[in-house]
Write a protein that binds this DNA or RNA. Structure first.
Lengths: 117, 117
DNA sequence: ACACTGCATAGACAAACGTCAATACAGCCT
DNA sequence: AGGCTGTATTGACGTTTGTCTATGCAGTGT
């Protein structure tokens, strides 16, 4: 809907980041676009490799248990963490593949190269 | 308001990512939590170092000009880009300090070390 | 001075988000 | 079986977000 005749210069030759990839990546970034989720991921990533129990995460915030559970669900849907039930408790651990991919995109921006992660 | 008597294990010793830093960082991640803004940053970062004209960015999307202007404003407020007016046109360029800082946080998650960026 | 172009701002509105209380589900333990 | 604890799901509600149209502002050029 917004077509402009080249006034100053030619249009950008090629879209550096395809719309599809941008949609997928933006969901990951959005998942970390909340301070609670960012802290949750940080706590999970800095915990033992076997995973961190939800019962350790919940009391660290002044939020209700369902709210923490909701944020954990979003982190899981974004591929940032995964979880497993062990008896009574549920343990969460980080998935570095996802954060590495995001870091690659940011790194390419910093390097002033095309973003193609 | 959610106090739980340690059932399985001791509470996490120290908050790896302070609430303040998390709030600041989450604003940056939130800024990239939209596919349009992610593509905008990608296009700006892969353009010439002197900056990319808005008139090159707007026609790349099927969105109104004010909407693109709004997204650029959010990217600027997040510290991801900066801009300058040159005559009739406005040019945007990336600020790698910000993306580098975000990448550092993500990298420390991937390395399974405490997040202290 | 005036009209024109490029970009930003203001206001409106539907959709998505963060939060909670209430409830449901899954495993343990008598 | 039945109660208890830890976690997830549901439904509701106020706030924020993304988008638009309409308008304003800055520079250019006649």
């Amino acid at each position: 809907m917004s077509k402009q005749e080249a006034g100053c210069c030619a249009p950008l030759p090629e879209d550096p980041l395809a719309a599809e990839q941008a949609a997928e990546l933006s969901m990951m970034f959005k998942a970390l676009g909340d301070p609670v989720r960012l802290r949750l991921l940080s706590m999970i990533a800095s915990g033992p490799e076997a995973g961190v129990c939800v019962c350790e995460l919940t009391p660290a915030f002044e939020l209700s248990q369902p709210t923490i559970s909701h944020h954990l669900k979003l982190l899981r849907q974004a591929g940032l963490v995964d979880c497993e039930r062990r008896g009574t408790w549920v343990y969460y651990w980080a998935r570095p593949e996802t954060t590495d991919r995001m870091a690659a995109v940011l790194g390419s921006v910093g390097d002033r190269r095309a973003v193609t992660a």
